[in-house]
């Protein structure tokens, strides 16, 4: 699993679940926010990814409830998912650090990455 870089939708999805369990629409909103509006995950794509991550044991269903008459299932990271995300975050951090070092050590201003 750690042999190759994680695909961006998977990374965004796991990141969106890293601080708290979330339901489907909240995940779409979080991914939109984390990616700075660049990735707008659609419902079918989201559930395709959720089903895959559930099957891989990287996430789990944390709660199933009815809120205001609406079915709501909340998803959370498993221990394996948390470990995998940590490994990927470390890999990205070291690449970013190396990129900054080669650029002369000057930190890139926030929002100037486009």
């Amino acid at each position: 699993m750690t042999e190759r870089a994680m695909q961006e939708p998977t990374l965004l999805l796991l990141t969106a679940l890293a601080d708290a369990p979330r339901h489907g629409y909240a995940l779409i909103q979080e991914i939109d926010a984390i990616s700075g509006g660049r990735v707008k995950m659609r419902t079918g794509t989201l559930y395709g990814a959720l089903d895959r991550l559930l099957q891989q044991g990287l996430i789990e269903v944390a709660a199933e409830e009815i809120v205001d008459g609406r079915a709501r299932r909340t998803y959370a990271l498993t221990g394996g998912g948390r470990d995998l995300l940590a490994v990927e975050a470390e890999r990205l951090r070291s690449v970013a650090a190396e990129a900054q070092r080669r650029l002369g050590g000057a930190p890139v201003p926030r929002g100037a990455t486009a």
Binding site: G24, Y25, I28, R42, T43, L46, Y47, R70, A71, R72, R73
Partner: peptide, 13 residues
């Protein structure tokens, strides 16, 4: 299993 949940997310999006 998921129909109602999909419908909710679809309605929101």
């Amino acid at each position: 299993d998921r129909g109602a949940e999909l419908a909710e997310v679809f309605a929101d999006t």
